[in-house]
Each structure stands twice: as C-alpha cells, then as structure tokens.
Amino acid sequence: MKMTKFFAWFAIAVGVTYFFVPLAGTFEFSLRMRRGEYSLDAYGSVFSDVQFQQTFGFSMLMALLTIVFGMLLVVPTAYWVRLRLPQMRPFVEFVTLMPLVIPAIVIVFGYLRLYNSASYIPFTGSLLGTNILLVMSYITLSLPYMYRSVDTAMRTIDVRTLTEAAEILGAKWPTIMFRCIFPNVMSGVLSGAFITFAIVIGEFTMAALLNRPAFGPYLQLVGANKAYEPSALAIIAFAITWLSMGLIQLVSRFGKLTQSRP
C-alpha cells in the first residue's frame, strides 16, 4: 500500500513537472521583452497590434458561425437518429468520427481541388464562398465533439417520450425542436460549443490553405518574425482554452443540477 502511494505521487510529480515547466518557461519568456527586467511589454505589443484585433475578431466570428450552423445540423440529426432511424446509428457515428482519422490537411486539399473556381460549385471563386467553405471545414473538424456531446445529452433525457408528450399537446415540428429538444440538451450543446470554440479559434491548417486572415495563420506569422510576442500569445491562447474548458465544466455541472430532478 505504501509502495502504491509512493508510485502514485511519483507519477503525479513527473506529470506536473512535464506540464508546468513549459508553461512557466513560456510565461517567463513573455516577460523578458524589456532588457534586464520583467515587464508586460510583450502583451502590450500584442494587444495594440491591429492585425491581432482583426484576425482574432475574424476567428471569433468564424467560431460563432461554426457553432450555430454546426448545431443546427447536429442536434436535429442526433434527434432524428434516436427517434426514427436507430438502425442508422452506427453509420452516423462512424461518419462523425471520420474527421479524427482523416487528417485535416487531406480534407482541405480535397476542397481546394473539388471546389476551385473552375468547378461546378466554385466555393473558392469568391470571398463569401471561401468563408462559407471555411465554416464548413470547421464544422467537419468539430463534428466528432459536437455530435458526441449532444448525443450524450440526449441519452439522459427520454427523447421519444418528450416528443410524444409534445405531439399529444398539439405541438408542431419547429416547436418540438426548438422549445422541447434544444433546451433539454442545452448542456450538451454548450459543451460542444465551447470545445468547438477552443478548436476553431487558433486553427491553422484550414485557414492558411484557404488563405483567410484568421488567428492561426497570424500566430504563425508572428512566430516567424518576432521574439517575445509569440510567448505572450501562447499564454493568451492557453488562457482562452482554459476559459472554454472552465465553461464546459460549469455548464455540465449546471446540467446535472437541472437533470437531478426529473
């Protein structure tokens, strides 16, 4: 028993060292901009950069659109599969897991060849089309996470009974969807939304290859040209990720509270 405890503490110590040293190193590095003393100059430089504001704003917008349209796709599908097409479950689950196996760079390569300006559906022929394609690519990337969190939330409520109850009360399809199903799987929708946000905000491959002015390519550009700002940006990115995950925990805890009284 003592040996067990010793090894457990040892494993934790190794883990903590491995995880905290890079963060501490990055933080320390980000403070070194002014010679001979620690300062927040690097952060000041980052925040005052117009490009930072623009690219971050663009990625925020893309993330928001990804979440809204992604959920409009995922929630009805998960609902329909549970209610009417349970035999399709394995297939749909398989498809939603494919983006974990097919590398993002392969997917975007396919887009570029399939939807170029000379094709039948020339997404990349216009700015709007390219932006739409970027949002679609982000939905694809976050599909595994969104579908899973929504489907998990649907398992805890009895979708069928809920639907039948609404139908007996005379509800129409949109009412059932937006007044009964969405609110009840809100915790799953929100968890999926935050994880999507964390993935999309700094995404590099899709944005770089579709040539959109997003936050990810901007980060790469700063990394190639500046010394201290990248560390500050890494700390900021870590803080954003932490915030998203914190919100997921908050939401799931809240979800549990409301569901504990069925």
């Binding site: 890079p22 963060l23 980060l219």
Partner: peptide, 22 residues
C-alpha cells in the same frame, strides 16, 4: 480539469511554448 485544457492546447501556441522552454 488540466487535462481537458492541455488536450486542446495544440497547434501554433504549443510550438511557441516549447520554443520558449527548450
């Protein structure tokens, strides 16, 4: 909690962190 954060901390910022460390 930390694992939830770190598993999603990838991409460009992760490279910065390791450049600043190693």
């Amino acid at each position: 909690t930390f694992s939830g954060v770190a598993s999603n901390f990838a991409g460009v910022p992760l490279a910065f962190a390791f450049i600043a460390t190693l």
